[in-house]
């Protein structure tokens, strides 16, 4: 505990750095996944192809992917962009599956009703498909956020500062408290991100609140998103 007390400043600084490293991949990954997921869900052929390709991308281990990045992007080997882009790739690979599931979960009768009421394709997407697939998208985003926050620690190995620094430094100086505080800080960030996402969901999808069946839908969506991410679906 002594180490933690005298190094609170360091842990806090690294926490902020870590948060700054994680937010762009989560946000960009989410935004990219919506059109890709929609397109994947729209046509059966595209769904198969896109999901297989992204599945293979997600298969690439993180440390090798970080190492490949300078070669692909032409960046310097210690650039934090390597980690940002690699984490975005993982976020997209995880999120597109959820997004495609989300759009697939919208009842086709509802879509036909919307079209019959005179919605154009564009309007129908923004006012019907996107809101109704909200719970599934949200559940997917929670998984992506947890995974990104954890993976960012490995960036430290290639010299991109994050909370992983505490692991490397703690091993070198054999201070278990330093390593443990790094793990705790990562988990705290993950929990805070999760709460923010859930809260944003409450605000953006108000019809999902209170009602029992809506809550059950949201829970089922969460279960499914986790299972999909675990490859068990």
């Amino acid at each position: 505990m002594k180490w933690v007390e005298s190094n609170l400043g360091l842990v806090w600084d690294l926490t902020l750095t870590h948060v700054a490293l994680c937010i762009p991949p989560i946000v960009i990954g989410f935004l990219l996944s919506i059109p890709i997921g929609w397109f994947a869900n729209r046509f059966r052929v595209s769904r198969g192809t896109i999901l297989v390709v992204l599945g293979l991308l997600y298969t690439i281990p993180s440390l090798p992917l970080f190492i490949f990045m300078p070669l692909i992007l032409g960046t310097s080997q210690v650039s934090s962009l390597n980690v940002t882009v690699a984490l975005t790739i993982y976020a997209v690979a995880l999120m597109v599956r959820s997004a495609s599931d989300g759009f697939g979960s919208v009842d086709s009768d509802i879509l036909q009703a919307a079209s019959a009421m005179g919605y154009s394709g564009w309007q129908r997407f923004w006012r019907v498909e996107l809101p109704l697939s909200g719970p599934v998208l949200l559940a997917g985003l929670r998984v992506v956020s947890a995974s990104t926050v954890s993976l960012a620690t490995i960036g430290s190995v290639i010299g991109v500062t994050s909370l992983g620094y505490l692991f490397l430094n703690g091993l070198q100086r054999t201070i278990p408290a330093e390593v443990a505080s790094g793990i705790v800080a990562v988990l705290v960030i993950a929990v805070v991100f999760d709460l923010v996402i859930v809260l944003a969901g409450r605000l953006l999808l108000p019809w999902n609140r209170g009602d029992r069946s809506a809550r059950a839908t949201a829970r089922a969506a969460r279960r499914r998103a986790v299972l999909v991410a675990e490859g068990a679906s």
Binding site: V143, A146, S147, V149, S150, T153, I154, V157, L163, G164, L166, F167, V179, G182, I183, V186, L187, A190, V191, A229
Partner: peptide, 8 residues
């Protein structure tokens, strides 16, 4: 998923 395996 959030548990950093490297740290563990």
């Amino acid at each position: 998923r959030a548990l950093p395996s490297f740290g563990v």
